[in-house]
Design a protein around this nucleic acid. Structure first.
Lengths: 134, 134
DNA sequence: CTTAATTTGTGCGTATGTATG
DNA sequence: CCATACATACGCACAAATTAA
């Protein structure tokens, strides 16, 4: 399963294993991952290394942590569709820490930035908002 | 500067300090941050804690790491504008690990996903692509 | 050209705090 | 009150790559 002598770092290999289990549906939305201690024992790793792997999945937006209940596969949010007006531009970036809190954004969730021709812009959580050109 | 007894974690306080220096322009694009060891000594922290703070800025897309040269304030990429067709929808998410490599995406950079009425979609690096509704 | 110093990456261990059940 | 689980913070060691001497 995990090869410490491989080129790829151990924590990345563990992240790959867990990501595969999520992407394949073996671990469905809302389902808990094994605890950090459990994973550490199961694969013979330190908890630090396990946390690095889970941290990777968090930045990818694949899992959410409900402390101290556990780590869970992210459940997709209900998305709302916003219509773009003429001349509006769309970009995306990661939110600042302050934006994360004010918009109640989970980890690993980008924001959509819609800028009008006048330069005014609005910021939308990318897990709840979708844009459409009518 | 940093208050270990504060509610906010020390590594977040350090991330805040560095982020402020970047946002204010004191640390401009392409400029190096102090080395991890330097920051640790300067603030009386462990290197682990400093790395947590820098890791935070990496996930926000504010800095890039060129190992082992150092950590640098991200230099904005040249952006290309793509025109949206009728009925196309736009969303954003973090790339998968595979997408990160194939698109040569830096850390903390989301992707823009444009989906046509037929369900076909294209993926664009958010630091190089901007969308516009004409 | 060789060697040393620097810097980030990885991995381990320990300890303590906090919130949940 | 106790056990579980994640968060924070410290320490150490070694590897790999670049840069400086």
């Amino acid at each position: 399963m995990i090869d410490p002598s491989a080129d790829r770092a151990v924590f990345r290999q563990l992240a790959d294993l867990l990501r595969d289990r999520i992407m394949s549906g073996e671990l469905g939305p809302g389902e808990p991952l094994p605890s950090e201690l459990r994973l550490a024992q199961e694969y013979g790793l330190s908890r630090t290394t396990v946390r690095q792997a889970i941290g990777q999945l968090r930045t990818e937006g694949l899992v959410t942590v409900d402390r101290p209940r556990g780590t869970f596969v992210r459940v997709p949010e209900q998305t709302q569709t916003i219509t773009l007006a003429r001349g509006e531009r769309v970009s995306a970036r990661m939110p600042t820490d302050a934006e994360r809190r004010s918009h109640r954004l989970g980890e690993g969730i980008p924001v959509l930035v819609v800028t009008g021709p006048d330069g005014a812009f609005t910021v939308h959580p990318a897990d709840r908002i979708q844009l459409i050109r009518p």
